[in-house]
């Protein structure tokens, strides 16, 4: 059984490799102008060159830093606010509908407003990324807190637990799946907004790198940057999935 899984995985890698070969052939035959589509060989060489002699590493770190700061701020604020709103019935009635109303707003529309206040700066990017990734987290946390089994609250009342103790010992653990799902969603949002902000404000990062490469028609550099962005998306999602799996292991029995 396990061997067949490995065999399928290898075959699947084979298909991917085959597609890359096709890409190489298409590029070599110049089916599409090399201005738009570099071969995988040139993109790869550009990636290596960018890391060894160029400043691709600092661009990568720039994007990761923007993402991480914005996401962390959003996580802290989102969980704290969400816990506050979700754990109180009155707050849920008064505040939650307004938040739901704002949910379908495309968050990137906040970028011009942020530019008007903060200019094309690092702070603007941080604010936009944090604000954008706040929503999935906030709504997930509120939902998680609202869906806590009511009997657990009764137990807490019988045990005379304080409100803080109730939040930390009962509500947070039982809302953890929703919170973590929100955190995973907001990680994707953070990456997208980081790229957009870097493009708009010319901040040090991969967004700026790919845009400048495109403007100079250096398509190999451009593809190297796009591949790197894909890797960021993949690795962060993988790490988040692993963290989720680990943190929710104790719930596996119940599910």
């Amino acid at each position: 059984m396990r061997w067949s899984a490995i065999a399928w995985r290898l075959a699947s890698f084979g298909v991917a490799a085959g597609l890359i070969v096709l890409w190489q052939l298409a590029a070599d035959q110049r089916l599409i102008s090399p201005v738009f589509l570099p071969g995988p060989d040139r993109a790869w060489a550009s990636l290596l060159r960018g890391f060894t002699t160029g400043d691709l590493l600092t661009k990568l770190m720039g994007t990761l830093t923007h993402m991480a700061y914005g996401w962390l701020v959003a996580s802290i604020v989102g969980i704290a606010l969400g816990a506050m709103i979700g754990s109180s019935r009155a707050m849920r009635i008064y505040v939650a509908p307004t938040l739901e109303l704002l949910r379908p707003l495309p968050v990137s529309a906040i970028i011009p407003v942020a530019i008007a206040f903060l200019g094309l700066s690092q702070g603007m990017a941080l604010f936009v990324i944090a604000f954008g990734s706040l929503w999935p987290l906030l709504l997930g946390t509120i939902h998680g807190f609202a869906a806590v089994e009511p009997r657990l609250y009764e137990v807490a009342r019988v045990l005379h637990m304080s409100r803080l103790a109730v939040i930390f010992k009962i509500a947070l653990p039982s809302a953890a799946p929703d919170i973590l799902a929100g955190m995973r969603l907001s990680l994707t949002v953070a990456l997208i907004l980081a790229v957009v902000c870097e493009m708009l404000a010319g901040l040090n990062g991969l967004g700026q790198w790919v845009l400048l490469s495109a403007r100079a028609f250096r398509s190999a550099d451009l593809f190297a940057g796009v591949m790197l962005l894909g890797v960021i998306g993949y690795v962060t999602a993988l790490a988040m999935g692993a963290a989720e799996h680990r943190l929710l292991r104790w719930q596996a029995v119940r599910r």
Partner: peptide
């Protein structure tokens, strides 16, 4: 799939 859509913008 993990490539963020806006990354394709320059292409």
């Amino acid at each position: 799939r993990p490539i963020p859509s806006v990354a394709l913008l320059p292409i």
